[in-house]
Design a protein around this nucleic acid. Sequence first.
DNA 1: GCCTAACCGAGACGGTACGTCACGTCTTTTA
DNA 2: TAAAAGACGTGACGTACCGTCTCGGTTAGGC
Lengths: 210, 210, 210, 210
Amino acid sequence: MNSLAASHPSPEVPVRGRPRSEAVERAIIDGTMRLLEEGVPLAELSIERIARTAGVGKATIYRRWRGKEELLVDVVRSVEPADPELPGTSLRDDLVVLLEALRRRGLANRTSAILHNAHAQMKTSPRIWNAYHNAVIAPRRRLGLEVLRRGQQEGELRADIDLELAHDIVLGPMLVRSLLHPDAELPEGLAEQLVDTLLEGLRPVSSPTG
Amino acid sequence: MNSLAASHPSPEVPVRGRPRSEAVERAIIDGTMRLLEEGVPLAELSIERIARTAGVGKATIYRRWRGKEELLVDVVRSVEPADPELPGTSLRDDLVVLLEALRRRGLANRTSAILHNAHAQMKTSPRIWNAYHNAVIAPRRRLGLEVLRRGQQEGELRADIDLELAHDIVLGPMLVRSLLHPDAELPEGLAEQLVDTLLEGLRPVSSPTG
Amino acid sequence: MNSLAASHPSPEVPVRGRPRSEAVERAIIDGTMRLLEEGVPLAELSIERIARTAGVGKATIYRRWRGKEELLVDVVRSVEPADPELPGTSLRDDLVVLLEALRRRGLANRTSAILHNAHAQMKTSPRIWNAYHNAVIAPRRRLGLEVLRRGQQEGELRADIDLELAHDIVLGPMLVRSLLHPDAELPEGLAEQLVDTLLEGLRPVSSPTG
Amino acid sequence: MNSLAASHPSPEVPVRGRPRSEAVERAIIDGTMRLLEEGVPLAELSIERIARTAGVGKATIYRRWRGKEELLVDVVRSVEPADPELPGTSLRDDLVVLLEALRRRGLANRTSAILHNAHAQMKTSPRIWNAYHNAVIAPRRRLGLEVLRRGQQEGELRADIDLELAHDIVLGPMLVRSLLHPDAELPEGLAEQLVDTLLEGLRPVSSPTG
DNA sequence: GCCTAACCGAGACGGTACGTCACGTCTTTTA
DNA sequence: TAAAAGACGTGACGTACCGTCTCGGTTAGGC
């Protein structure tokens, strides 16, 4: 389950000693979440306090994670919403769904005050950031790129455009809104509006869809 | 100079006792910068260490800033590049200059490893983030909005588009690249390519400029 | 074998399940001795380390002793030299043999650096000290008292003297030397010299033996 | 004041920064004494608990002593009774006073349950034991040797006897009683009885005092 | 030849204390 | 009054052991 710690020995090696309790693992992650939900500032989130909250010894946490940051990666992962279901009817529809998921995620983080800044905290160490990037950000990006690739094949996207660039063009505005400008609005129709506006510059020159 | 601390008593009240040394203030900020440049991870940047490096008492730092985060705001401000000179010849040209400044800033932060994450660290406290936002991010955003407003007046931008939205559309992709994807490329012509692509969807429907 | 733990159920109750391994018991005591011989300070002698050294589970130790101190009692007992053979020719000769045994024990502890302070460590708990006292010190004292009682009967010792007091008078000086003053000398003829000097004040007033 | 820590810089070096509080030092030693008096077993005397009791930070203790054992040396020293006033009228009288002080000390430790075993605890480290030896034991021994030396000069003691040996002969029995046999009696006239008995074997052959 | 109970190694578990470090405040002397 | 220095109470750090508790596996009778 952990994304950084070597969670399990290779399957051939028989388990020696008392196995680690999954219930404890859940208690730690849930306890951390509870603290964040109660509004405890990230700076006051100490391992000691998490252990106290979860009713767990400190060593039990350090047995699973190397420090607060690595634990946060798993906490964030545990509340990260699942990838949205893509309709697959058209490039536009898929992108609208992706952006809408992003919008909702931004709204959730803002209102619940969770993870508002946990994401930022994780940048303090390149190692942690990589783990978070690999576990959370990269899969989303891959999904977006896949959608764009399909759209390009179907002729809904200019053939000469770099897919990475197209991805940042489509996703960037919404991300910037939800990450950098916590007081920016994220109104209901924003996803559709953005996709429609942005696809304008990305469609093939003589578009079949007009 | 400080953006958060009430640095000086009101000017009418004559200064009593020994005045604060500006040299000391510089020494503190420069010492912090030196530590960051030497690759000291942000998590190991303690007030105690900064005081040691700057050859300064801890109380002298606390007399000026309320904590590490507030000090960081001023440190970051001190190395933030000046606003770029805008040509003013056209909306496109101005936006290219703005994005090019952003690209270079991203490159600088990546190579020098300074401030790579100091920006993230400051999100730990809403108060600090606001200070940084007001001192650094907001002015840039105002400048960008001003450019777009002028472009709209000149008919280079669709009249029905929300300027805030247009701003995120134009700036978002570059920001996402430099902030979230530290290993994403920021090649030379990126600014022009982005502006040309993005303006496609933002131009007036039957544009006079083509 | 253990002096504190109720090592075995009463013999009528038939042993159920796998019996405790005596080899394991030896391995634990020998492992502890090896650590002490290697110069590991008493303060660093943890149950965990002993278990590691003996290649034994912690629970296996706790099944036999209630803690480190109780284990130490048995370790010390295992290296305590056997009671010396008494000649029985005279009070003086017996006392010389007893003191000589004490002198040699003091020398051994000093040079081998074993048990130098284990004896002291055991005073941390009255319970442990009692066990050690009963298992090691008291038998020796009983032996000494018996020698003195015989001497008194034979008229080699004043009849009006308290035997307990006489014991401390004879044994005290050598004990103090070997326990309190680790750098005090314990030269070869010390036992005889002490006995001859001390008996002076303990002989009957007009001694028949002169 | 501390016997192990380098307590004060050399007097030429002017004191820099806030000086160490003597009140704090007293609070720590007194707090430790209070705990011992309340019957807290030595094994449960942690630095953490001492700090809590004294209302003091752990670092404040570690700034003065290197650990629990070194602190104990000073605690024991602080309650060690002052050297007794010697009458100087005769060897016998001086020795009686010395032994009487020892007897009373043994009684005090037994009844108050203080220092009963602190003395033993300090043997865990040779360094600590040396400090305790130098600060407490050695001065007492020097005093006893001085008394014996004077007695020898005055002809009250055999000229051929080694003073160190004589010291152990006279002091040993009482020490053994009070240290090793906690339940041995220390009745009122014990000091005089011991001195009178022991001097028997130590007087010059044809004694002037008869 | 099973059955069953206790033993055994390993190591997880909730705790407590370790000794260090930084926090932000305070008390010195010196300027 | 500022400034360097450093003591102070507080509290978190990450580690080590404590003594207890599961695990899978072993080793003896008793059936």
